[in-house]
Amino acid sequence: MIKVLLVDDDVDLTAMLVEYLAQENFEGHAVHNGEDGVAAALGGGYAIVVLDVMMPRLSGIETLRRIRQSSRVPVLMLTARGDNIDRITGLDLGADDYVPKPCSPGELVARLRAILRRTEPQPTPAASASAAATVKAGPLLLCPGSRTATLEGRTLDLTGTEFNLLEVLARGAGHLISKQELSQRAFGRPLSPFDRRIDVHVSSIRQKLGTRGDGRSWIQTVRGMGYQLVTD
Rank of each mutant, 00 (worst) to 15 (best):
D12G: 09
T14P: 02
V18F: 01
Y20Q: 09
E24F: 08
H32P: 00
N33K: 04
V38S: 07
L42R: 01
I48V: 13
V53R: 04
R57V: 11
L58M: 10
S59L: 06
G60A: 04
I67G: 02
R68V: 05
S70N: 13
R72C: 11
L76G: 08
L76D: 02
R81M: 11
N84S: 14
I85G: 12
D86H: 12
R87V: 14
R87M: 13
L91N: 00
D92P: 08
G94P: 09
A95R: 02
D97Q: 10
D97V: 07
D97I: 06
V99L: 12
P100F: 13
C103F: 13
P105T: 08
G106I: 02
E107A: 06
A110M: 06
L112H: 07
R113H: 11
I115F: 03
L116W: 04
A126I: 14
A126W: 11
A127Y: 15
S130V: 14
A133T: 10
K136M: 15
A137D: 10
A137L: 10
P139N: 11
L140M: 09
C143K: 11
C143E: 14
P144L: 05
G145L: 12
L158P: 03
T159G: 13
L166S: 09
L166M: 10
A170K: 12
S178V: 09
Q180G: 13
Q180H: 15
L182H: 04
L182R: 06
F187C: 11
R189E: 13
L191H: 06
D195M: 02
D195C: 01
R196Q: 09
R197V: 13
D199M: 09
V200W: 05
H201R: 07
S203W: 09
S204P: 05
S204Q: 08
R206K: 14
R206G: 03
L209I: 08
G213C: 02
D214I: 01
G215S: 02
W218R: 01
T221C: 04
V222W: 08
R223E: 03
G224P: 00
Y227I: 03
Y227S: 01
Q228S: 12
V230M: 01
V230Y: 00
